[in-house]
Amino acid sequence: MPTDAVVRDQTVIAWLTAAEAAVSDRADYLTQLDAAIGDGDHGINMTRGFAAVGKALAGQGDQIPPGRALILAGKTLVSTVGGASGPLWGSALRAAGRSLGDAESFDGEQLADALDAALNAVVDLGAAAPGDKTMVDALGPATEALRARLSNGGSLAEAVDAAAEAAEQGALATVPMQARKGRASYLGERSIGHQDPGATSAALIVRALQQAVAAEG
């Protein structure tokens, strides 16, 4: 198992910064997806939350362990986003941060453990199962792909790339699904044919992780 590449505090900060840029750039698109099967505020809420995360991290100085940065980001999202996305993403990042603890750097296996913890937190709070047309349909495949690529001898960069690809495919795969959780579930069959906004923003955030790891070299 290659353990040459490690994730450091700067990588996590770069991830959260890239995530802020991604949800902000795609805010209108996320809001359009949400308007079709939800209440049309997903892009606005996620942008508000990640902008607050950027501010909170900027106030922390340079040296903050990656786990601590994720916990702070999670708390900030819970406090600023509202709706369902705030508690879900907040709990996810807090769980990932707690999984990493106070270590100053971590390897691919630990990253996989952290993403599993994030996914479990989302499932615990939202009780969504695969196929319910939620963010779980992007995060689930992402965590599986990450671990699979690592156990096949892939590098960290290859593994997060596989995870980002799997998350994007997972988001696309929500189109034919009927929503069973959240506001879209009220639509019943009418939710079919629309891409889930939560799965879409989840794919953006996993892609942001890939970009941060790639930039780290």
Binding site: V78, G82, G83, A84, S85, G86, P87, L88, G90, S91, L125, G126, K181, G182, R183
Partner: peptide, 11 residues
């Protein structure tokens, strides 16, 4: 009973 209200009140 709305998903967001339930989650935020739970936390």
């Amino acid at each position: 009973n709305y998903t967001g209200d339930v989650m935020n009140f739970k936390l």
